[in-house]
Nucleic acid binder design. Structure first.
Length: 477
RNA sequence: GGCGGCAUAGCCAAGUGGUAAGGCAGAGGUCUGCAAAACCUUUAUCCCCCAGUUCGAAUCUGGGUGCCGCCUCCA
């Protein structure tokens, strides 16, 4: 297959990517916990795995992509209590806005999007299996995973139990209440007991809800199988989330949970991680008020996914300017020129198009095959744009435009000419401007011009009505 | 305290042994009534500092400095 190489967190090396079944890729990315709006950091994660998924398909793999939604969790419960609504309602509202954000960002929907609350029964079974095999124990109202029972614990994080213990020591003090329940501070909850009436489900251990890490293990098993090809998420999930997933799943199945672990780095503001807890985040919703989805995507893809991105208004503006160049390039054949369908067809079939496609596809693939180096891939796009602007023949330009357009799509860039979309406020102001010009024509008794404006506006469905004072008003017909 | 990562022009950012991609911004020129766009030329003798390995290092090794992340919820 392809010479694709990916950086595997598990081995801390760039490795040849070999799918378990040859052509089928089963991949899972940890999605959001829906307790508030999504910010640019979430967008980065979603866009990174969207592009990975798109490129794998482009490379000929049959991809099944699963991205979950965590809809039961302490944060959701606490936040819902603060604002006085049911946790289920809070989760549902945030799922809808998350979906809207994803759609606006041109992020392809995953093949499956399981939610934790849909997999309670499999999770209960999962926990029971761990108890039966001696990897978990009931303690009070809860069930915990016994970390010392899994010899490979720490392999993703690359720290052994002793090192982890010394790191955890600080935490022990703040977990006094849990100290009595856990046999070791490293043990983590598989099932948390809840008081009757609180969000929860029945289980062999009483009313309660699943621990955070459990859902991914259970959903991966149920949707994709015991071993998958790619498991991904944000860098902050490496420990403890993914480490714990490995512990649960591999303890139960005695086989690797995932062959390749991919983690994207963060978006930073003022050299600090953008995060909900630090409060220094910019929501997707907010950013889309001012910047196009393509601008955000270009901004994020101009940096390799494993490097942190320093987010500033300047970098955003730079991305916007750069994007404009690509958009102009791809729209640089005029309507009249493009209207000739025959020419388009010829351009698509031409030897030049084939040669151009081959050349740039191979440059693009070389970049992407190197651990999804989108920054280098974007440079290829700008190289094509150069060619387009340098080419004087419209039909030859079309060949390059095909290349630019098709490669942009693999990165999820639409290159839509949003610069020419006009909002109603602006449209209204433009009409006012026309009426101003018309009025000055009337004052000069240039009725030919003033009538031209009125008639043409009427033709566009805008009715102009002169007022007694010499001005004019207008309305849609 | 334990573990890991990063340091490339004014800004953002690729590049892991062979002599510095790309974007933005800037400068000069062409075009233009003026602009904008586009085109041409141009902007790091050098990749945080020091030492080492090598014919050769931004790229490898050691030391130093600075910044960041994880260890608690987190994309």
């Amino acid at each position: 297959m392809s010479p694709l190489q990916v950086f595997n967190t598990l081995t801390a090396k760039k490795e040849d990517f070999v799918a378990l079944d040859g052509k089928t890729v089963r991949m899972y990315a940890c999605g959001p916990t829906v307790y508030s709006l999504s910010h640019l950091g979430h967008a980065r994660m979603a866009i990174v795995f969207d592009v990975i998924q798109r490129y794998l398909r482009y490379s000929g793999y049959d991809v099944t992509f699963v991205r979950n939604i965590t809809d039961v969790d302490d944060k959701i419960i606490n936040r819902a209590a603060e604002i006085g609504i049911r946790p289920e309602q809070l989760a549902r509202e945030n799922i809808f806005t998350f979906w809207r954000d994803m759609r606006l960002l041109n992020i392809a929907p995953p093949d499956f999007e399981p939610r934790a609350t849909e997999y309670i029964h499999p999770m209960v079974q999962f926990v029971q299996g761990l108890i039966d095999s001696g990897h978990a124990y009931k303690s009070g109202p809860d069930v915990y995973f016994e970390v010392s029972s899994f010899k490979d614990y720490g392999k993703l994080r690359k720290q052994n139990l002793d090192e982890l213990m010394s790191g955890a020591r600080e935490q022990v003090r703040s977990q006094q209440d849990l100290k009595n329940l856990k046999r070791s501070p490293l043990d983590f909850a598989l099932w948390k007991g809840a008081v009757a009436g609180d969000l929860g489900w029945p289980s062999p251990w009483g009313h309660g809800r699943p621990g955070w890490h459990l859902e991914c293990s259970a959903m991966i098993k149920n949707v994709l199988g015991e071993t998958i090809d790619i498991h991904g998420g944000g860098e902050d999930l490496v420990f403890p989330h993914h480490e714990n997933e490995i512990a649960q799943s591999e303890a139960l199945h005695s086989k690797p949970l995932a062959r390749y672990w991919l983690h994207n780095s963060f978006v930073q503001i003022d050299a600090e991680k953008m995060s909900k807890s630090l409060g220094n985040f910019r929501t997707i919703q907010d950013l889309l008020q001012t910047y196009s989805p393509d601008t955000l995507r270009l901004l994020l893809l101009q940096t390799h996914y494993r490097s942190p991105i320093e987010f500033t208004n300047d970098s955003l503006t730079a991305a916007k300017s750069g994007l404009q160049r690509l958009i102009r390039a791809v729209h640089s054949v005029s309507e009249e020129e493009a209207a000739d369908l025959q020419m388009k067809k010829q351009a698509a079939d031409s030897e030049l198009t084939k040669a151009v496609m081959q050349q740039f596809q191979s440059e693009f693939a070389r970049a992407m095959d190197s651990d999804f180096n989108t920054a280098a891939a974007v440079a290829v796009l700008f190289g094509i744009a150069d060619k387009i602007f340098q080419e004087t023949s419209a039909s030859r330009r079309l060949s390059y435009i095909y290349a630019l357009d098709s490669l942009s799509q693999i990165l999820g860039l639409t290159l839509e000419d949003t610069g020419r979309l006009i909002d109603t406020d602006t449209a209204g102001n433009v009409i006012d401007l026309l009426l101003e010009i018309r009025n000055s024509a009337r004052v000069k008794k240039d009725f030919a011009t003033s009538d031209l404006i009125r008639d043409r506006l009427a033709g566009l469905g805008v009715k102009v009505m002169d007022t007694a004072g010499g001005g004019a008003s207008w309305e849609r017909d």
